[in-house]
């Protein structure tokens, strides 16, 4: 990824993220979050993770954001105006964040892993087609031979080959979530909830 584009996307992600944290109006915050996640999705794509990038947009910027906005509108939550700022949590929040960033920067600068770039660790698509063993479905190997990264197919293969069980657990989890939503927000038969 060209440096300039990376910095631009990072700026979008972090800048809108910052606005979420500082914004006073929940609607603005939600929209900023969507923008931030779009930037993040672009970063994913820059990391050759097209599938993840797409579902990041679909799930977050699409579904989750709509849910947030819907709730904000439904509950008619106003901006927190007129309330005085509570300094202690703000200061501690900033402090924790700064410490964490310093820590992460220190870790990143001291490990060799962080120096990898897409130049020194390039994807070897056509060579990979011969090596991927069980994942060697014709459609995947063909894609690889053609030099494109069939990452949705590869993720799908990993999910259903290695993580079939986990997928079902996640399904159960979504079901539990659904039950939870019904139990918690259904109106009572007897009238007002």
């Amino acid at each position: 990824m060209p440096s300039l584009l990376f910095y631009l996307l990072a700026l979008i992600t972090l800048g809108f993220g910052f606005m979420v944290v500082t914004g006073r109006n929940p609607v603005t915050c939600a929209l900023c979050l969507a923008a931030s996640f779009t930037g993040l999705a672009a970063l994913f794509i820059g990391l050759d993770a097209y599938f993840i990038g797409i579902i990041q947009i679909l799930v977050y910027a699409g579904a989750v954001m709509v849910l947030f906005l819907f709730i904000i509108m439904l509950l008619d939550i106003k901006a927190e105006e007129g309330k005085k700022l509570n300094l202690a949590p703000i200061i501690s929040g900033v402090l924790v964040a700064v410490l964490l960033v310093v820590q992460i920067a220190a870790v990143v600068s001291s490990t060799g892993i962080a120096d990898k770039t897409s130049e020194n660790t390039p994807l070897a698509l056509s060579e990979a087609s011969g090596k991927i063993g069980r994942a060697a479905l014709p459609t995947i190997t063909n894609d690889l031979k053609e030099g494109t990264l069939p990452d949705a197919k590869l993720i799908g293969f990993t999910l259903f080959d290695q993580y079939g069980f986990h997928l079902q657990v996640i399904g159960l989890l979504l079901l539990v979530g659904t039950i939870g939503v019904v139990v918690l927000s259904k109106r009572e038969k007897g009238g007002a909830a």
Partner: peptide, 16 residues
């Protein structure tokens, strides 16, 4: 991965 998935199943159930 297994830890995460099963742990979250437990956690989300507990939210409810």
């Amino acid at each position: 991965v297994t830890v995460f998935v099963s742990l979250e199943l437990v956690t989300v159930s507990f939210y409810v």
